[in-house]
C-alpha cells in the first residue's frame, strides 16, 4: 500500500497537523490523499474542465502548505482546503465569466424549475435500465445546468457527503442558505432527470 495512503487512514487530525507542522513530507502526501479528490471535484464542477481543475488542485495545495501557520484548527483540515479550492475556482470562474451573478447573492426565483411538472415515476426503473440510458452523461449535463451557487452546495452535501455546517463554512454562507440551496438543487435536478426519462421511455 502506498506510504501516504497507509498514513491516511491511521493518523488522527491532530497528529496529522503536528506532522505537517514538523514538515513531515509523508504527512503532506497523506493530506493529498485525504482531501485531494474532493478539492479536484469542487474545481471540476465549478470550472467544467479537467485542465483547470488540475490547476486549482495544484494551486490549492501549494497555497495551503505555504500558509499552514494560518490554519488555526477551528475547522477540519480538509474543510480548510476545500474553502481555499472553492475561492480559487470562484475567482477563476469570475475572470472567465464576469457576467456571472455573484454566487453569494440570494437566488431569485426567476425560473420555475422548482415547481414539479414532470410526474413520471421513474424511481423504480432497474439500475441496468438507467445505466443503459447513458446515465453518467445525463447526470453530468443536469448538474452542469444548475447555477454555480446551487451546484456547489449539492455536490458538497449530497455527492461528497459533507455536513451542512461544513458546507456553510466552506462557502461562507449560513446553514439556512445551505439548506435552501440544497433543496432547490435537488428539485431542479429531479426535474431535469424526469424530463430525460420521460423522453427516453416515450421513445420506445
Amino acid at each position: 500500500m502506498p506510504v501516504a495512503r497507509r498514513m491516511k487512514g491511521e493518523l488522527s487530525e491532530a497528529d496529522l497537523l503536528d506532522a505537517l507542522r514538523r514538515g513531515d513530507r509523508q504527512a503532506f502526501a497523506a493530506v493529498i490523499d485525504r482531501c485531494g479528490d474532493t478539492v479536484y471535484h469542487v474545481a471540476y464542477r465549478l470550472l467544467g474542465s479537467r485542465e483547470e481543475a488540475e490547476d486549482i488542485l495544484q494551486e490549492t495545495f501549494l497555497q495551503a502548505f505555504q500558509h499552514l501557520k494560518d490554519f488555526r484548527g477551528e475547522a477540519r483540515l480538509c474543510t480548510w482546503l476545500y474553502r481555499i479550492a472553492y475561492n480559487l475556482a470562484l475567482m477563476r470562474l469570475r475572470r472567465k465569466e464576469p457576467e456571472t451573478v455573484s454566487i453569494d447573492q440570494p437566488i431569485l426565483l426567476e425560473n420555475d424549475e422548482e415547481v414539479p411538472r414532470e410526474l413520471l415515476d421513474w424511481c423504480c426503473l432497474p439500475e441496468e435500465e438507467l445505466l443503459r440510458a447513458e446515465l453518467r452523461s445525463v447526470l453530468d449535463e443536469a448538474i452542469r445546468s444548475l447555477p454555480a451557487s446551487l451546484r456547489t452546495v449539492f455536490l458538497l452535501r449530497d455527492v461528497e457527503g459533507l455536513s451542512t455546517e461544513e458546507v456553510a463554512e466552506i462557502l461562507g454562507i449560513s446553514t439556512d442558505a445551505v439548506k435552501t440551496r440544497l433543496h432547490r438543487a435537488r428539485l431542479q435536478l429531479r426535474e431535469r432527470l424526469s424530463r430525460y426519462f420521460a423522453e427516453e421511455l416515450a421513445g420506445r
Binding site: Y40, H41, L139, I143, F154, R186, L189, L193
Partner: peptide, 19 residues
C-alpha cells in the same frame, strides 16, 4: 420518490476523482 432517487444516483455515480 424521484427526488430521493436523484440523490441516490448522484451519490453512486456523481463523484469525480482526481485522475
Amino acid at each position: 420518490n424521484t427526488t430521493r432517487r436523484t440523490i441516490e444516483l448522484y451519490r453512486r455515480y456523481g463523484r469525480v476523482s482526481m485522475p
